[in-house]
Design a protein around this nucleic acid. Structure first.
Lengths: 139, 139
DNA sequence: GTAACTGCAAAATATTTGCATCCTT
DNA sequence: AAGGATGCAAATATTTTGCAGTTAC
């Protein structure tokens, strides 16, 4: 528990470098999704911008984090649940974007409902993003 | 029918300029979504890059097109259905991204299923993006 | 010791802003 | 004629690439 980030890196056979530990810790201590810019800010630019890009890409490749599509030319990243694996994400839960605090939250327990597609369309992955007001900002 | 784009501009009290007509025509003749880069390419750079940015923004503001979130640092745009209005989109249909042809298609008839959120979350808008193989590429 | 990772520099790309000119109404 | 839209130039911001030096194992 003291070093969940180290466990995660070990489990994925990734070397335990400062940037990987630092960025992974940030995700572990953040309730919600982070954009590249958030990470730079919250790590006080401790790591080179390029390193952050490459680290995020690595984590995505290994299935440690997943990407959340947005409509504003950024990509949000959030920790995957334990059953994600490299190349095969099981992150089919709903993401919630709050219009007030602008945080994006993974609703891990809300799975994406099935949807019936027209004949001939074969789905392989479904993303669902709900905008609205979150439980913290509702008042 | 000859000039649906003109109708649309008129309906929204937008001046009928070359770029607006041209870009709107492109959308009307495209079955699917377009990114900024697609528009530049398909209009053979007839309009300044900046004009394309501003035109797209205007169309979004007026509810003529809507944005589709993506996970690759681009924004896709697609025509809204007739019942969209400025500031109040009703584009809650499913978007389908084909892994083979990479086209994004609006499944206008597939409405986004309801999802039950945890207590305290108030949804205002829902987006659903399905990846897979489209009807054209399925073979 | 070696392979992999990092940081710096720089290139490539993408987006925004200001302003003078042109076009629509 | 007047307001708004466009195009150009330039400023900003973002992302990628190459490479030399450093670190993890």
């Amino acid at each position: 528990m003291i070093a969940k980030s180290l466990d995660l890196l070990k489990k994925n056979n990734l070397s335990k470098t400062e940037s990987r530990k630092g960025i992974l810790d940030l995700f572990l201590h953040t309730n919600g999704a982070l954009a590249h810019a958030d990470i730079e800010k919250k790590t006080a630019a401790a790591f080179d911008r390029v390193t952050v890009y490459r680290t995020l890409q690595t984590f995505v490749d290994y299935g440690i984090i997943h990407q959340i599509p947005t409509t504003d030319n950024t990509i949000l990243y959030a920790l995957c649940k334990d059953d994600c694996e490299a190349g095969h994400h099981h992150d089919e839960h709903v993401h919630f974007v709050c219009n007030k605090c602008e945080n994006t939250i993974c609703l891990d327990d809300v799975i994406v409902p099935k949807v019936k597609l027209p004949k001939g369309f074969q789905p392989s992955q479904v993303a669902m993003v709900v905008r609205g007001v979150c439980v913290v900002c509702k008042n």
